[in-house]
Design a binder for these strands. Structure first.
Length: 871
RNA sequence: GGGCGGUUAGCUCAGGGGCAGAGUGUCGGUCUUACAAACCGGAGGUCACUGGUUCGAACCCAGUACCGCCCA
């Protein structure tokens, strides 16, 4: 027998272990069943489980479990990402604590430490994942730097290079001076920063004239190689072709003209620093300007900046340049100025444009195919408004800088001859230079983490080998992820999948919302507003957490997570637990079957409702409306199965009704199956207490919605009884009649009511606290009679003592007032000839019916009231 | 500056042309032998604002305000 309250901990431990031992999550390479596959967005090995993961993994788990029960050969592949820059930072930090640095220990030792760290801590997140109950196929677990995966990465690099889709270039890229690596464009976060606009005079030698330029970064002036103005700008025509003096450096630099210069910005004249600004870089190339590097990769001033500034940090240098300019009279003025500044997405340091040799992916040919795949519907975004975001980005995509000056990651398979500088790209290191036979060295850099994760959907299945897994499980069916990595990851998987598999990597992309706190802010450590999923699991149980996430998952909406809600679903788990206890207590170990021909009303009703619920659930899940599915099953279990069905059948159970026992058991069995994808642990535990159980709910079939169970007559009859009982309860509550005080119920109708209520005297007595029921044509007049109207039937509650009729009259008055209001609205509409003419016939009829009901009820209420007044 | 989403009960949110909903909180009552993590009952709304379309608008359209996010 079940314990009195549900305790999630032992149950969760037990079934997690069981599912793994029985290998229930494993996909079959050979199977007659249709396949349904997914790959898990690999969390970083440095990661700890947060709510974002919990959401992003729980939702697809609901789908996978549902699909599996529907008879699919499901396979959901887990794994982790090596998270190049994140791990690199962790190791560097630990070295720093020991007074060491990456340069001091060297590459080999650094990598040894990184692997050691990975072995030790890389499993943390996977263990945490298991606690969520996700049905992941751990036998197929992968790591983006495992041997096979690394081979795939090299293979892709070499292939793209040979097709000239990967190239090396001396280019101005974003560099984080703190992480000491370059970053791709999308790894830059733009933030509005309050700064200044400095106006600096560049004199024209031999005259009193000068050009004033405006800049937000005065320190870069040290590397200026031109001043640019718009060719049509009258103010500067006299400077065309002249050279001005660059203050502090005492260099002469040309004044150039270019259409790109905005006449309205600042003074209309801008300084040009080709080595330190993306716009100036392009301008410099166009006008063949010299590129002078004055800031190095650490954000410090170089020798070229001049003796006075060399070695200074870029921001310290800014101050010094300003004070120098001021001192020498070159600073004209400054203005407050807000502008967007790029920050490193990992460490939030202000990035520095940096001129260097880097590797790039030529993105346009890849992007073209990826756009087409979404355009023609081979890939569908859910909700679909993300499609627009995807296109917007894909249309203006830049080439992708993929080299990183880090050590932890896939080292770029490019080799350079030390003698003739020949570049060789190959799977294996060449023994000698292919041209001159000289010694070769490998490129020092590693690849962007996202380069390898772009291959995740197929490299995890064994590609480039032609494996069975690849044949069976690719393309996958669904990708569930957050919108924040549509560009980083989803788009690139699509490009790489199309390029190398000639097929999309997944058919649907489900974009879940971002988890926020109650004030809709992002959860972050620095804000201190994190709700830790593991803590929630400890407190409320995994099932409660999962159900909360599902119930809040409205497609396209961010989620404001509240702990209260979780407490509510813990209560729900307990409710199911206790309802099951009740069922089990009344069941025994007998094998039961029901005789469908002679089922009582509540049994027919619950089956009918169950059928509708199954249909609804299927529809909701098919459309990824998790919140709708969650609400449907929640309401059905608590407010129909528990509140009405179980209460209603108590008398029948006492009489030993075998049919009722059978239906009760069968409905519970189906409820557990329907709820299983949402709450896998508690359902599995309860189900194993049922007399006829199998290996696991996961290997059971998803309940069918069989139309022969639909029973509108039963639903209507039940509705009548519910109305009747509710009305009695309301009268009792208003008149403060304790449950113990039984009343005598009069029903003023001999026909229909008697037919409907007659067989359920016992249930009515139990649920409404009635001891005797009588049917009359006329309601007797009595001082101890409380009257009400249920549906359109007059009822009276006869008490053994006399009661104050005042509260009851007030209640009826109020009900009447409400009713009059509704009726007035209804009549106004019905009296409108346009309504009758133009509204659909069905709507008109419906309105008519409602009017009749309301009028009938109004009559009864008025009658009751006047009778009560007379007494 | 461009784009996306939001504004419905005290709070968190569904709904999406034809009766205004849920959970939670709140108020009153109940230890009714599955469950007090429960049960029963009640109160609580100008569906942000302005206009339009329509027989009919919380819902569709246009605009305004405010909040949030993304991209420059």
């Amino acid at each position: 027998m079940l314990e009195k309250a549900y305790d999630p901990k032992p149950v969760e431990a037990k079934w997690s272990k069981f599912w793994l031992e029985e290998r229930l999550f494993e996909g079959q390479a050979k199977s007659d069943k249709p396949k349904y596959s997914m790959v898990l967005p690999p969390p970083n090995v440095t990661g700890v489980l947060h709510m974002g993961h919990a959401l992003c993994f729980t939702l697809p788990d609901i789908i996978v479990r549902w699909k599996k029960m529907q008879g699919y050969n499901t396979m959901w592949l887990p794994g982790t990402d090596h998270a190049s820059i994140a791990v690199h930072n962790v190791i560097e930090q630990s070295l720093k604590e020991k007074g060491l640095s990456r340069d001091k220990v060297g590459r080999e030792e650094f990598l040894r430490l990184a692997w050691e760290w990975k072995e030790k801590y890389g499993g943390v997140i996977t263990e945490q994942l298991k606690r969520l109950g996700c049905s992941l196929d751990w036998s197929r677990e992968r790591f983006t730097m495992d041997e096979g995966f690394s081979r795939a990465v090299n293979y892709v690099f070499v292939s793209l290079y040979r097709e000239r889709l990967i190239y090396r270039d001396y280019y101005l890229v974003n560099r984080c001076p703190r992480c000491q690596t370059v970053l791709s464009d999308i790894e830059i976060e733009h933030q509005e920063v309050k700064g200044h606009l400095w106006y600096i005079r560049y004199p024209l030698p031999g005259t009193d004239e000068a050009i004033v330029v405006a800049t937000t970064r005065p320190e870069t002036m040290l590397g200026d190689t031109a001043v640019a103005v718009h060719p049509d700008d009258e103010r500067y025509k006299k400077f065309h072709g002249k050279k001005v003096l660059l203050p502090l450096q005492n260099r002469l630099i040309p004044v150039i003209t270019d259409e790109q210069v905005e006449k309205d910005f600042g003074t209309g004249a801008v300084k040009v620093t080709p080595a330190h600004d993306p716009v100036d870089f392009e301008l410099g190339k166009k006008h063949s300007l010299e590129q002078i590097i004055v800031i190095d990769g650490l954000g410090r001033m170089t020798e070229a900046a001049g003796e006075e500034f060399k070695g200074l940090d870029r921001f310290a240098c800014r101050e010094k340049v300003i004070s120098k300019l001021k001192e020498l009279g070159y600073l004209v003025k400054l203005e407050d100025y807000s502008h967007a500044v790029g920050h490193c997405y990992r460490c939030k340091t202000i990035i520095e444009p940096y001129l260097s040799w880097q590797w790039f992916v030529k993105i346009e040919p890849l992007a073209k195919e990826a756009i087409k795949a979404v355009e023609d519907g081979r890939i569908v975004f859910i909700p679909e408004n993300w499609t627009k975001t995807y296109f917007d980005w894909m249309y203006k995509i830049h080439d992708w800088c993929i080299s990183r000056q880090l050590w932890w990651g896939h080292r770029i398979p490019a080799y350079y001859c030390q003698d003739c500088h020949q570049v060789m790209v190959a799977m294996e290191k060449p023994a000698a230079c292919e041209r001159c036979g000289g010694t070769v060295v490998q490129d020092e850099d590693v690849l962007d983490t996202w380069f390898s994760s772009a291959l995740w959907p197929f490299a995890t299945l064994g590609w480039p080998e032609k494996t069975e897994d690849l044949k069976v499980f690719y393309p996958t069916d669904l990708m569930s992820t957050g919108f924040d990595i549509i560009f980083f990851w989803v788009a690139r998987m699509i490009m790489m999948g199309l390029k190398f598999m000639k097929e999309v990597p997944f058919k649907e992309v489900f974009i879940n919302g971002l988890i926020r706190d109650l004030k809709k802010r992002k959860m972050s450590k620095s804000e201190g507003n994190i709700i830790d999923p593991l803590e929630m699991i400890d407190k409320y149980g995994t099932d409660a957490l999962r159900f909360t996430l599902a119930s809040l998952a409205v497609p396209g909406m961010d989620i404001a997570l509240s702990e209260e809600r979780m407490a509510g679903y813990r209560a729900f788990a307990n409710k199911i637990w206790n309802a099951s206890r009740f069922v089990l207590m009344n069941l025994g170990e007998e094998k039961t079957g029901s005789d469908d021909q002679s089922l009582s009303l509540p049994n027919r009703w619950i089956r009918s409702r169950l059928t509708r619920v199954i249909k609804q659930l299927n529809d909701s899940l098919k459309n990824y409306r998790f919140y709708e599915a969650a609400e449907t099953i929640y309401h059905f279990i608590w407010h129909e199965f528990c509140d009405w069905y179980i209460e209603f059948i108590k008398p029948e159970l006492r009489q030993g009704n075998k049919n009722t026992r059978a239906v009760m058991k069968d409905v519970l069995d189906k409820i557990l199956k329907l709820l299983h994808p949402f709450m896998p642990f508690i359902t599995e535990e309860i189900w194993h207490h049922l007399p006829e159980r199998g290996l696991s709910l996961l290997t059971e079939s998803w309940p069918e919605a069989s139309n022969q169970w639909l029973d509108e007559e039963a639903e209507e009859a039940m509705k009548f009884l519910q109305d009747l009982i509710s009305e009695i309860r309301t009268i009792r509550a208003k008149n403060q009649l304790p449950v113990k005080e039984k009343v005598h119920l009069w029903i003023s109708d001999q026909g229909e009511s008697r037919r409907l209520a007659g067989p359920h005297q016992e249930a009515i007595r139990l649920l409404a606290g009635v001891d005797k029921i009588e049917y009359v044509t006329e309601m007797p007049a009595s001082k101890n009679l409380l009257k009400g109207v249920a549906s359109t039937i007059e009822i009276g509650l006869q008490l053994a003592r006399s009661v104050d009729s005042q509260p009851e009259m007030e209640r009826l008055q109020k009900e009447l007032a409400h009713l009059e209001e509704d009726l007035a609205k209804l009549l106004a509409r019905l009296e409108n000839p346009d309504f009758r003419q133009r509204a659909p016939q069905a709507v008109v009829t419906e309105h008519e019916q409602r009017r009749q009901e309301l009028q009938l009820k109004r009559e009864k209420l008025l009658k009751n009231l006047s009778e009560m007044k007379e007494l």
